[in-house]
Design a protein around this nucleic acid. Structure first.
Lengths: 219, 219
DNA sequence: GCAAAAGTGTTACGAATACACCCATGC
DNA sequence: GCATGGGTGTATTCGTAACACTTTTGC
């Protein structure tokens, strides 16, 4: 708890976006290499200032697009971080959002890199805390909503869906019970197509019936 | 969806506080009579501007104390409301908090009144939406945390605790099952004291063992 | 034929639910 | 003695968890 010596005259609003995906069998977060003097070696979740004429949601979507080129992702407000000394450059109140990127979608912007959520680099500001809050929200929501849909590609195989759960929750699930449960919820529909070309039995491809977030008891 | 015509130059930060208690067998909310021209007949959750030198949490506690005289309540950040046109007087981003007041504690400040959460008066700004979000958060948290402690007096009878749940959840609970469940969780300890002076069998008084919020599956 | 993942049912256990009567007090 | 809420146990149902083998493909 360091006390701020600076006397701020204004408060500015920012948004920061924690972008998740599943890569290499891990939950990963997209971070931006900092350039500012005080944080030369640090990384941060992409963020920026809210414009006076735009809502927080719009600001989050705009900044996400500007910094990463990504649009149309699932975006949800997480929490607002308002410690006085959280930014050494001024009094910045930041509303954090988290975004979910379907697996297998590439991000090519320079200065951005993926990190395992469990093994983060040195982070600027209070972004360690922000990302920790995002991870625990994501875990919680996975259990009682259908938002996994936002992490999956359009068509996928049940074992990939199960893997996604396992990676985020950090524990193994029983294959038969998982299938029973997820199919009983009627969130998925089978497509006619099967996987092919792999050295094992082909698998049925599924899709989510609807891509709207809703509450369902999954785990 | 009305578009704002005003071109705001600055964004200011506010906090609004939804204060809950149980009164008259109902979940009630403490509201303040508005004075401003545009909202002459409306009520609003107490709120105010965040000072540049104080955190959001501090601002919420300060404003709660200033407007109602209440201190030491359970306070939790709810959500940040950032629509551009949510306040006709300027661009105000408001971080909403909710507070829980133990039953039977009086509030005497003028201009404040209690309303049933299910039957609210005309509300200023987007406070209808804010209160709705607070009610649903409260319901959800009741089921998987021990925060009821913040709504109960120091010592209470099991049937009062059950009544609190019933009123907030809006459904009846089975007495025997409720007692079994709540006692099994070891959140309560019995006091030596009993109720007296009522026209029925005396009841054992209980207390919460700890008054820290923690996650437990209650319902 | 071997490796690799897909697909499939049943049993056992524990938690949640439903349910009714006697008890202690004030008036 | 009657009205009022306090206090208690059991049987049933339902959901969760545990568990192993056969199938289809590529190489």
């Amino acid at each position: 708890m360091k006390k701020s010596v600076v006397k701020y005259r204004f408060t500015v609003n920012a948004v920061d976006i924690v972008i998740f995906t599943i890569r290499e069998n891990e939950l990963q977060v997209l971070l931006l290499k900092m350039q500012k003097p005080l944080f030369k070696k640090a990384w941060a979740a992409p963020g920026g200032l809210v414009r006076p004429q735009e809502s927080l949601e719009k600001a989050a979507a705009r900044i996400l697009a500007e910094k990463t080129g990504l649009t149309g992702l699932y975006l949800e407000q997480l929490y607002t971080f308002g410690r006085v000394d959280r930014d050494p450059f001024g009094r910045v109140v930041s509303t954090a959002y988290f975004a979910l990127l379907p697996v297998g979608q590439a991000v090519l912007t320079v200065g951005l890199a993926w990190f395992m959520a469990a093994k983060l680099p040195v982070l600027a500001y209070d972004h360690k805390e922000i990302i920790a809050a995002a991870v625990s929200r994501l875990r919680a929501k996975l259990a009682y909503t259908n938002i996994v849909y936002a992490l999956m590609p359009k068509e996928f195989v049940l074992s990939d869906l199960q893997k996604t759960y396992e990676v985020i929750l950090g524990r193994a699930l029983d294959k038969r019970n998982f299938r029973k449960k997820i199919l009983a919820l009627k969130l998925l529909k089978t497509t006619a197509r099967l996987t092919a070309g792999e050295a094992h039995r082909p698998a049925v491809l599924f899709r989510f019936i609807d891509q709207q977030p809703k509450a369902v008891q999954i785990l």
